[in-house]
């Protein structure tokens, strides 16, 4: 990811380069501006964490990148999604489908509803090879077993004909990972992959994902609301708020000293495992409705640093140090205050 967050020139090493993406939803209450000019880049082998609360646009951005946006009501109204340098948004439906699944794959939060309940997991895995690579039935089945073994499902050969409901939550999530990996993608988008899992199982699944990514040097976009998970695995973070990226930074720098008041508020509002503390520093108020995003900086009604300029002028992404950017007029003050 570059400092200006706009992909920069050249861009030879980027696997995925999202530029100025905007997505709208038509709703009964008017147009919801779900994504408002989001840019990010992912290099091969890099893990980008997209952090945000519900309604921040983090999942919608990913859906637009994958080309699985519900449309209507959703619509990409601007921007580019460059994958290996090709703009996916200009491709025909058929071309796009060939890339999706084979070259970029997605892992969803809820494996039980993402998997087909009336097909055995083996059949679902084998289908990938049969449809995309024209593999024979027998060979596809063999590769399905291999994949299940690879993601750590015990007794894979015996369980290949089991149905999704016969697996535990953690095992189902492993099967989702297996499906995503099946065709050797260059990019994986994982949308809250461990949120529905218990913490001991979450750790297993996260470790597996990180290990596979390293081994296969894939790009990984990890979409999450969990600051703990991000700290454990990410290289770079993009924090989203009201459909915008408000801060991007290398993971260590961001946790050491956030450059946006929203990021700082998030970090201060989570209780810690390692000490008790007393009162939590809650961010006041609520995230805005996407049909009525406040003018100027969308965070200003909740921001402790807000001045007049914040109410009128939307802040650009300021360069705030090596590899980092902040969409705050007072990023310098925030950064200094955090140090």
């Amino acid at each position: 990811m570059t400092n200006d967050g706009h992909g920069g020139e050249g861009g030879g090493t980027a696997l995925l380069d999202v530029r100025d993406l905007t997505v709208e939803f038509r709703t009964r209450d008017g147009v919801a501006h779900a994504v408002n000019g989001v840019s990010y880049r992912v290099a091969p082998g890099e893990t980008l964490a997209v952090l945000g609360e519900s309604g921040s646009g983090k999942s919608v951005t990913a859906q637009a990148v994958m080309g699985i946006l519900d449309s209507p009501p959703g619509r990409v109204t601007g921007g580019q999604v460059l994958f290996h340098g090709r703009d996916l948004l200009t491709l025909r439906r058929e071309e796009r489908r060939r890339i999706r699944g084979a070259k970029m794959a997605m892992i969803f939060q809820d494996a039980l509803s993402a998997l087909n309940p009336v097909l055995s997991v083996g059949a679902q895995l084998a289908e990938m090879f049969r449809v995309h690579e024209g593999t024979s039935r027998k060979e596809a089945r063999g590769r399905a077993v291999e994949l299940m073994e690879r993601v750590g499902i015990p007794a894979a050969r015996a369980r290949v004909d089991d149905y999704p409901h016969q697996f535990s939550g953690g095992m189902r999530q492993r099967i989702m990972i297996a499906m995503a990996l099946a065709l050797g993608p260059d990019l994986i988008i994982a949308d809250e992959p461990t949120t529905a899992l218990d913490v001991t199982v979450q750790a297993q699944v996260m470790d597996l994902l990180a290990e596979l990514q390293r081994e296969l040097t894939m790009g990984l976009i990890l979409i999450t609301h969990d600051l703990g998970v991000v700290a454990d695995v990410a290289d770079t973070i993009a924090v989203m708020y009201a459909g915008r990226i408000v801060e991007t930074a290398p993971v260590h720098a961001l946790y050491r000293a956030p450059a946006h008041p929203y990021t700082r508020g998030l970090l201060e509002s989570i209780p810690r495992l390692d000490h008790k503390g007393r009162r939590l520093h809650a961010i006041k108020g609520l995230p805005p409705s996407l049909t009525a995003i406040p003018p100027g900086c969308p965070f200003h009604p909740r921001c402790p640093l807000a001045q007049d300029i914040c109410r009128t002028d939307p802040p650009p992404l300021y360069e705030a140090g090596p590899g980092r950017a902040s969409a705050c007029h007072f990023w310098k003050e925030t950064l200094d205050g955090a140090r």
């Binding site: 913490v199 001991t200 297993q204 470790d207 703990g228 700290a231 454990d232 990410a234 946790y255 495992l273």
Partner: peptide
């Protein structure tokens, strides 16, 4: 259980006692 909780501190990543 405690060792599996992700801690929001990347510095702690390396020197944590993880029990999987």
């Amino acid at each position: 259980l405690l060792s599996a909780v992700p801690v929001p501190d990347p510095e702690a990543r390396a020197h944590r006692d993880r029990i999987l």
